[in-house]
Design a protein around this nucleic acid. Structure first.
Length: 274
DNA sequence: CGAGATGTTCGGCT
DNA sequence: AAGCCGAACATCTC
């Protein structure tokens, strides 16, 4: 599920736990999400600490606790955060549960491409501060984008959009959404985009990220949106990118290609080759 | 039953 | 040498 707006949505699921102490920790020690550090060490570190804040950066999540304890979470392909009742019994894919007074914070991940890693630092960990600028950040400028595209001159733009170095938080459906809005063919080589095409790409990347954060992430609203994807407008490509899908603007059938190993849907007539 | 699913990493090749 | 591509990871659904 998770691209930047869904990551934001999941971050908010743990809001109920902010400012509260962790009274017990359940881990599923052999789960693959602990591949970068022992689960039991993470569990021991979190116990007795208070959850201070959650941060997101693209698809990365960083949970700040008291005592210089930080937990990095990545939702991978199927990770979800939820707040449940205090007496919750772990189910099959619940790999991490932080129990607090009044509730349990759950990390569930069926496919286990996600990640949970302990970090210790006074202030933000250095690797977090060194992450590339997010696409909604003022530092993510047209000049920054141009430098990135130049380094990948022979890469199809669809593949480049999935590169977290240049487009933190953009994943497969958002990449298709951006190219569709920008009227760019997904196989266009980065080096072949002219000034005008690069400008449109920059604008639509920002626009899709901002719109998705508002619709899915619930940014700027009180309370949580009831369902993650339900509020995505039908006019987006999002709902139509499947084998029998048609373009919500032209009504013509969508083309399907596998690019960089990922399913890609586009309207071949609108998205002409650059 | 094989294919594919909103992700990342690694080994091999150019 | 930088950068590309396919495979692998684990599980469920169509």
């Amino acid at each position: 599920m998770p691209e930047l707006a869904e990551v934001e949505f999941n971050r908010r699921q743990w809001d109920a736990g902010l400012g509260r102490m962790v009274t017990a920790v359940y881990v599923h020690p052999s789960a693959r999400i602990y591949r970068e550090g022992p689960a039991l060490e993470l569990a021991r570190a979190l116990l007795g600490q208070t959850l201070v804040r959650g941060h997101t950066h693209g698809k990365q999540m960083l949970w700040e606790f008291t005592g210089g304890v930080w937990m990095q979470l990545h939702l991978g392909m199927s990770g979800e955060l939820r707040s449940r009742s205090a007496d919750l019994t772990p189910s099959r894919h619940d790999h991490l549960i932080l129990r607090q007074d009044g509730q349990a914070l759950v990390f569930n991940d069926e496919r286990m491409f996600g990640l949970a890693t302990l970090h210790r630092a006074e202030g933000f960990p250095a690797w977090w501060l060194g992450l590339p600028p997010q696409v909604t950040d003022p530092a993510w400028t047209p000049a920054h984008l141009e430098r990135f595209l130049r380094r990948r001159a022979r890469t199809p733009i669809k593949s480049a959009l999935l590169d977290q170095e240049g487009f933190p938080g953009i994943g497969n459906w958002m990449a298709d959404e951006i190219l569709w809005r920008a009227s760019l063919h997904p196989l266009s080589l980065c080096g072949g985009l002219g000034h005008a095409a690069r400008q449109v790409l920059w604008e639509q990347t920002r626009a899709v990220a901002t719109d998705a954060l508002r619709a899915i992430g619930g940014v700027g609203e009180e309370g949580l949106p009831p369902d993650m994807n339900a509020r995505v407008p039908r006019t987006w490509l999002f709902w139509h990118r499947h084998a029998k899908g048609t373009c919500p603007r032209t009504g013509r059938p969508l083309q399907h290609l596998v690019i960089g190993g990922r399913s890609t849907y586009f309207e071949a007539q609108r998205q002409a080759h650059a």
